[in-house]
Design a protein around this nucleic acid. Sequence first.
DNA 1: GCCCAGGTGGGTA
DNA 2: TACCCACATGGG
Length: 231
Amino acid sequence: MTQRPLATVYTRLYDHYGPQHWWPADTPFEIVVGAILTQATAWRNVELALARLKERGLLEPSAMRQASPADLEEAIRPAGYFRAKAQTLRGVLALLEDHYGGSLDRMLQAPAAVLREQLLRVRGIGPETADAILLYAAGHPVFVIDAYTVRMVSRAALVPPGELGYQRLQEAFHRQLPRDPSLYGEYHALIVALGKDCCRKQRPRCGACPLLDLCAYGQKTTSAVAQAAGN
DNA sequence: GCCCAGGTGGGTA
DNA sequence: TACCCACATGGG
């Protein structure tokens, strides 16, 4: 193992999967909304919800703010947890209104540490969602840790067991990689690609897979992993 | 029918 | 701190 195993793994993933072109969205607001809707939810279902928001003209801050709670819930229903997520979306709109005069641009230009604290105070936004918004919508060099990341890192023993909590693991990525938002964005997307691709049940092709040592085969895939990532 | 998906927050011991 | 559980929909 090299001195910067997380950097080595990035190269291997990039060589294998190529660029992922994340975050898939037309506007920064769509990134913010998508980051909330995708919590514990397949992206396919998020796309359904985003399409419904677009159809209804609700995929911009002012329109979403004016929508009734029931209409907002109905629009995002396919993404699951729709009542909780609608409340979270309204929480972000309130933050936008209260601190940035309703201007998303101004919010995204705020210092990363300030915005992160403000986002974490919104009910329904935890460290992963806050960091996804900071990275992909605001362009801050903040690494996003998700369940796939914890699974890969623990499976391949890329950091000591005591560093699997969200903050410690994030620090390890920050330490071992150049402080570059595009790199962080690509890396997180590649980890998700690996997580979706790799086997949970052993399949014939697994033996030949060059990424076998990173794959989550044999690991629990449920909230136990996510919990391990909790602070 | 069962398991899982790009989490979060609240409760209990 | 360490687990549990609710939250909800849609696809394999």
